[in-house]
Amino acid sequence: MARKTAQGWFGGLTAARAAKVQLDGNDYADFLNTLASFQTNLARFLQTTGQTALHID
């Protein structure tokens, strides 16, 4: 979305730009799977090295 709207940060609504963004469901699912895999691997690494991985909702 940031590339489509040429807006790098979506914090200020006073300077928000409107744009329609196409979302590919398969690409998004791949992104979510990659993210979940990374998070699982990170939590496992932290736990096996004596750290703790806290889940924040």
Rank of each mutant, 00 (worst) to 15 (best):
T14C: 08
A19V: 07
G8E: 10
W9A: 01
G8V: 09
Q7L: 07
A6E: 06
F45C: 15
F31V: 12
W9F: 06
N41S: 08
A43F: 11
V21G: 01
N26Y: 02
T49G: 09
A43K: 15
L35M: 14
T49S: 12
G50R: 09
Q22G: 04
R3S: 07
S37F: 10
T49R: 14
T14A: 06
T40Y: 12
L13E: 04
R3K: 08
L32G: 01
L32H: 03
L32P: 01
A16V: 09
A15R: 04
A29C: 02
T48M: 14
H55M: 01
G11I: 00
N26Q: 06
Q22W: 03
F10W: 02
Q7M: 12
N33M: 08
A53M: 09
W9L: 10
R44V: 15
F45K: 15
N33D: 15
L32F: 02
W9S: 00
Y28F: 13
A29H: 06
Y28D: 10
F38S: 09
A2S: 05
F10P: 03
T5R: 09
I56C: 02
D57S: 05
N26I: 01
Q22C: 05
Q39M: 10
T52D: 05
H55C: 02
L54Q: 11
L42I: 11
D24Q: 02
T40G: 13
N41P: 00
D57W: 00
R17K: 13
L42T: 09
V21D: 08
G8L: 13
K20V: 03
N26D: 15
K4L: 09
F31H: 15
K20D: 08
K20F: 08
A19P: 02
L54G: 01
D27P: 00
H55R: 11
A2N: 03
F38G: 10
R44N: 12
S37Q: 06
A16P: 01
G25A: 14
L42R: 12
D30H: 14
A43T: 14
G12I: 00
Q51T: 07
A6P: 00
A53R: 11
D57P: 00
G50S: 09
T5E: 05
A6I: 01
F38L: 15
A18G: 03
G25P: 01
G50I: 12
A6L: 05
D57K: 10
G11S: 07
A18F: 06
A36E: 11
S37E: 11
N41H: 13
D30F: 07
A2C: 02
L35C: 04
V21M: 05
A2Q: 06
Q47Y: 13
D24S: 07
N26F: 02
G25K: 08
Y28E: 14
D57G: 04
S37T: 15
A29Q: 15
M1P: 05
L35Q: 10
L13W: 08
T48W: 11
I56M: 02
F38R: 12
A2F: 02
A19L: 07
A2Y: 00
Q51K: 14
N26T: 04
R3I: 01
T34I: 10
Q22D: 11
Q7I: 05
R44M: 14
D24T: 00
L42C: 14
A53T: 04
G8F: 11
R3H: 04
